[in-house]
Nucleic acid binder design. Sequence first.
DNA 1: AATAAGTTGCACACGGGCGTGCACTTTCGG
DNA 2: CCGAAAGTGCACGCCCGTGTGCAACTTATT
Lengths: 201, 201
Amino acid sequence: MSTPTRRDAVKNRAGILDAATAAIGHDPRASIDTIARRAGLSRRALYGHFDDRDAIIREVIAAGAARFNAIADGIDDADSRVALARLASELWREAAHVQAAAALALDDAHLPETSAALAPLRRRIDAIVRRGQDAGELRTDLPAPTLARLLEETGRTVVARVDAGSSTARSIAVCAVLGIAGLSWTEARALLEQHPDLEAQ
Amino acid sequence: MSTPTRRDAVKNRAGILDAATAAIGHDPRASIDTIARRAGLSRRALYGHFDDRDAIIREVIAAGAARFNAIADGIDDADSRVALARLASELWREAAHVQAAAALALDDAHLPETSAALAPLRRRIDAIVRRGQDAGELRTDLPAPTLARLLEETGRTVVARVDAGSSTARSIAVCAVLGIAGLSWTEARALLEQHPDLEAQ
DNA sequence: AATAAGTTGCACACGGGCGTGCACTTTCGG
DNA sequence: CCGAAAGTGCACGCCCGTGTGCAACTTATT
């Protein structure tokens, strides 16, 4: 368990985590058996890789946290509206992990861990909102914490509930976030045209 | 079971449904025991009023459907933006039922029933969106069904996740819906000022 | 080919929620 | 006040998910 020697073992372990991420994103109470089957293994085999169901979930959360940290750190646009749009666009790429983290954050008793994992993302959103309100780029009728929370909830909902397969899904998500941020739909569309990289794959 | 004779029995029955609505809104998998305790009864007593856990849920859904129908029927504003805002505002009054229906629609295998219960509401939203796009009042960058769905999801999220106790919570919900609909935050605020009844209790 | 790592299937015990039966107590209503 | 309706507490069996032990099997690695 400390030093996996065989190659297929580490591959299976990764497969379990992928399966768990997908399954939990769909239903946070997905059973061990469901995860195992999705990974192409037997229920019993999971216990050779993880002590516990909790251990799997902890790793899923940790994996998501790492990716979210990287994304949050990579946002450096001067315009807060572009920063928000980019955040949504980048997170779209990690839809599976976002869905898993969101589902766990909603449902489970894993609140403390998930909120810790999402903390850097939240700090980033807070900072962007504060800066954007000061610059008059974002709506000022809501206090910054309220707006930040609203953006987070909306973003999560869209990522979790809009069909990720659609080709325009990403821009729908970005537009929804910008709409909550206070932009009219024409302003949001103009912003997207000025920054075509936001819609790139 | 067909003709409840005692007065306290019908009161308890109503209490069970209230408790179930609240409990399910918070967690769609709330146990019979949780609901019973919240209603001030023993688990065993519930089975004197309802055959099944499903029977309780069915009644919760039916109660919500009745209220939603009434609200949907009462919206007759010519301006689609006002209609959407009023819909959100009215639904806010039924937050408990909205939360329960939303939780059940998300989580459970009660999809068919809940979607049937929400159907009139959805038809209403569809009609408002279609009319609003034709009139140039709502965003036209998204197809009507997509926008309708986005509005529904956003509204549900806000109702379910924003603290209903706050005095400004209702206007937050309305503004969020209008933002998704394509209005800028200043337009949304102006609309709210022109229609003070939207914020009334 | 041989060894160890990995997997499988079965068995078990445990916990929790559900639905029911039954004897007993409380409380309403005429 | 009395009888019936309603509620309580306990028991049981059921199903499902979890975590573990164990023997047998398959597969990677050298």
